[in-house]
Design a protein around this nucleic acid. Sequence first.
DNA 1: GAGAAAATTGACTTTCACGTAAAAGTCAAT
DNA 2: ATTGACTTTTACGTGAAAGTCAATTTTCTC
Lengths: 128, 128
Amino acid sequence: MEKYYTITELTREFGVSTRTLRFYEDEGLIHPERRGRTRLFRPADRHLIKEILRGRRIGFTISEIREIIQVYKDPPGEIGQLQMLMQKVVEKRDDLRQKRRDIDETLAELDNVEEACLTRLAEIGVGT
Amino acid sequence: MEKYYTITELTREFGVSTRTLRFYEDEGLIHPERRGRTRLFRPADRHLIKEILRGRRIGFTISEIREIIQVYKDPPGEIGQLQMLMQKVVEKRDDLRQKRRDIDETLAELDNVEEACLTRLAEIGVGT
DNA sequence: GAGAAAATTGACTTTCACGTAAAAGTCAAT
DNA sequence: ATTGACTTTTACGTGAAAGTCAATTTTCTC
């Protein structure tokens, strides 16, 4: 009773191309099953794709995303690697916090732009 | 009593290359003055660079950044253009809000990764 | 089981945001 | 006068992340 998704179902759901999903497979981010040559995506794959796209939206590279996925699959067993990973986590977190500040500032600025537009529209509207 | 910055002063301050700043000039984002052929950056240019880099961090393309700068320089005078601009603002704002949600989710996930690392480290530490 | 629709692979192309190398010019200090 | 640090332009190169196209299968649908 396994539920499978076809590749186009998922491209439609997420607004990406088949090429993109195949690319992600080539890059080792997902591992859909096969029936013959055709890819069969299971709910777990679908969920993973969702996370990949989220990572993409905030600017993670493919290899960064791959790293994160790896951690879930099998966390490194060696102390040195664990420490390296943790340092990366700290860096990424700082990075994301900075990004959030950037976003907040930019949102405020967009509000200004909008207001300027409205003002300008009012001026023009009055003039005609 | 105009204060000028040289290109390398700014590259050092912002951690970008000279190529990057020249590229931004080529792309029409900044317009430093010249003494002979040499670029002279004023505080206003420096400020603009800061904003450009902020836009870059959150994933704006060069042309999106250029558009925003244009609005401050001279807001469009035509109604149609103003309306188009306002729609873009709305879209960008939705976009940024989504990004903020993505970031928050990812921050939470990074916390999980960190915790998993600590747990793993404790296990290894206990075992030795 | 025939034909349409969908999926596959592989190769080539594109876009963005710079990097890099070459070949000079500028300027202050020694 | 030379060194060394810095700057300039021009032009080709690069890596990431797909897009596009063509030539086959494969899979549905009737």
